[in-house]
């Protein structure tokens, strides 16, 4: 029971980190970035290449992976999304799907479809308390996500850039009038989201060590669900949604059915949205007539 809970929180922390990327981008650019899941996959491959092929130690290879994904995120935003800033949301959605196809197929060409065994990034002994054994990966994941959440909360509430980010997500026009560089702020949001995706990729692949071009797709969809679950656009909502989703998934797998666990997760989402149509911590929107 306790170990299920820990596993659930650990999986949920990964979802939460991915969901943060979704929710920040949604908040600021009002778009569903479907390519986010594939950035996770690229992050995983980058860490895999730098440790397995180049023989780098763990920390530099994680940093390298974050660096590559950050650049990638900014590049995607610049090339694919920026020209569509005034276009309909459906056009942006389809473009994001195109980017997602592109990343998946590029990975397929570079690394082939054979699953790669992800190296053990967390080389620490498992923690044993009484008769409960907790894997070191789970602990590292939880600690990493707590650090990220604290850092992000501090960033958005205390620093100038973070405040600019919140201002842009609230009202683009007004933010511009206040002298905030809107384009740079959006670009920065993509950079942060993609950097977080790289960390999520490394943590996800440490827990489930098979790496394929489609690795990012399902966690991507689930994290997106988590972001909506918590109220999309809200940063604490993404954290809460992610962790709850992880716990629900692990418990559904353990006590109800392994095969139906995904269906149960999505069913819970639907029930929550029917009761509270803007998610757990979502803002209530007043309707203009």
């Amino acid at each position: 029971m306790v170990s299920y809970l820990i596993n659930g929180i650990s999986l949920g922390s990964v979802y939460a980190i991915i969901a943060l990327g979704y929710t920040m981008v949604y908040g600021i650019a009002k778009m569903l970035n479907f390519a986010h899941g594939d950035v996770i996959m690229i992050g995983g491959y980058m860490a895999f290449c730098s440790t397995s092929y180049l023989g780098w130690p763990v920390i530099p290879s994680v940093l390298f992976s974050i660096f590559v994904c950050t650049i990638l995120g900014m590049l995607i935003e610049k090339l694919a999304y920026k020209p569509l800033r005034e276009a309909s949301s459906l056009a942006v959605l389809i473009t994001a799907i195109g980017v997602s196809y592109f990343l998946q197929n590029a990975a397929l060409l570079i690394w082939s479809s054979n699953p790669k065994a992800f190296p053990n990034m967390v080389d620490l002994p498992n923690l044993v308390i009484g008769d409960v054994q907790i894997s070191s990966v789970a602990i590292v994941t939880i600690i990493a996500s707590i650090i990220i959440m604290i850092a992000l909360t501090f960033f958005t509430s205390k620093t100038k850039l973070g405040k600019a980010m919140r201002a842009v997500s609230e009202d683009k026009g007004a933010a511009q009038l206040m002298g905030i560089n809107v384009n740079a702020t959006i670009s920065m949001t993509f950079a942060i989201g993609s950097g977080l995706a790289a960390i999520a990729g490394v943590l996800l692949c440490s827990a489930y060590p098979t790496l394929m071009p489609t690795t990012g797709a399902m966690p991507g969809i689930k994290a997106f669900t988590a972001a909506v679950f918590g109220g999309i656009g809200s940063i604490p909502g993404a954290m809460l949604g992610g962790i709850l989703l992880g716990i629900i998934e692990i418990f559904a797998k353990a006590y109800i059915s392994t095969q139906l666990s995904d269906a149960i997760v999505f069913a819970v989402l639907i029930i929550v949205l029917i009761v509270k149509p803007t998610g757990l911590l979502g803002k209530k929107m007043a309707e203009k007539v």
Binding site: I221, V228, Q259, L269, I274
Partner: peptide, 28 residues
């Protein structure tokens, strides 16, 4: 009946969720 009460992106995500549920159930 439940989905059409929602709006915009929330409606989209719920239809996505239903699609996944149908796939998951048919898979078993």
């Amino acid at each position: 009946i439940p989905v059409l009460r929602l709006r915009g992106d929330y409606l989209a995500i719920v239809t996505l969720a239903f699609g996944e549920i149908i796939k998951n159930v048919l898979n078993c």
